[in-house]
């Protein structure tokens, strides 16, 4: 109730201020939902390029028109974060041969970005005790950091963490040798 009163006051104070909200399709072409509350007026936007303005019905704008009028702000959007998963030989911080190849994809992604930062999160399978796996998972993330520093990414741009066997990609019982759980997730942003 208090919030509603505040909105009403905001509307009165703002006088001629006027806003427009336009929903965009995601990478899969589908749109999510934005609910616009403007005093008593409520618009639900749930299809691509649906637009809400004060005192008007929701309407769908031509895509080209939206892309043009919002060209500058759209161009300024940072690249979407990219995620990679690299796998390890059992009990070690050595990448599998296939994942060594995948490391090149991470490097290619890093080179495309003007100011990249990296988060490397290490994981283990369920063989061994909790603390040993915590240590191994962090060691794997740190090993990734060494690789990335070697190819020129500043160390302070790389964060590492180890989650041990707490976040299994493939759920297993304890003491199961599961190659898909021995991994580092690398997020390039």
């Amino acid at each position: 109730m208090a919030a509603r009163a505040l909105i009403a006051v905001a509307v009165l104070l703002s006088g001629c201020a006027k806003d427009t909200v336009v929903l965009l399709p995601g990478p899969d072409g589908k749109a999510g939902t934005v609910v616009v509350q403007r005093g008593q007026e409520r618009h639900v936007l749930n299809q691509p390029y649906a637009s809400s303005s004060v005192g008007q019905e929701v309407k769908v704008l031509p895509a080209a028109e939206v892309r043009e009028s919002y060209g500058t702000v759209l161009q300024a959007l940072p690249s979407r974060p990219a995620a990679f998963v690299l796998y390890f030989i059992t009990g070690t911080d050595e990448l599998t041969p296939a994942s060594k190849g995948d490391l090149q994809k991470v490097l290619a992604e890093l080179k495309q970005r003007p100011s990249p930062d990296v988060v490397a999160i290490g994981h283990t399978d369920t063989v061994g005790d909790l603390l040993g796996n915590d240590r191994l998972s962090l060691q794997r993330a740190e090993r990734m950091k060494v690789y990335l520093v070697e190819i020129g990414i500043p160390g302070e741009r790389i964060k590492t963490a180890g989650r041990g066997k707490r976040e299994l990609l493939v759920p297993t019982r304890d003491n199961v040798d599961e190659p898909r759980n021995r991994r580092v997730e690398i997020n390039v942003r």
Binding site: I7, D19, V21, A31, T33, G39, L74
Partner: peptide, 17 residues
Amino acid sequence: PTSIMGVRGTEFLVKVD
């Protein structure tokens, strides 16, 4: 200044004139 938007997992644009 005139609206509150609730966001349910999506992409959108806002303009204030």
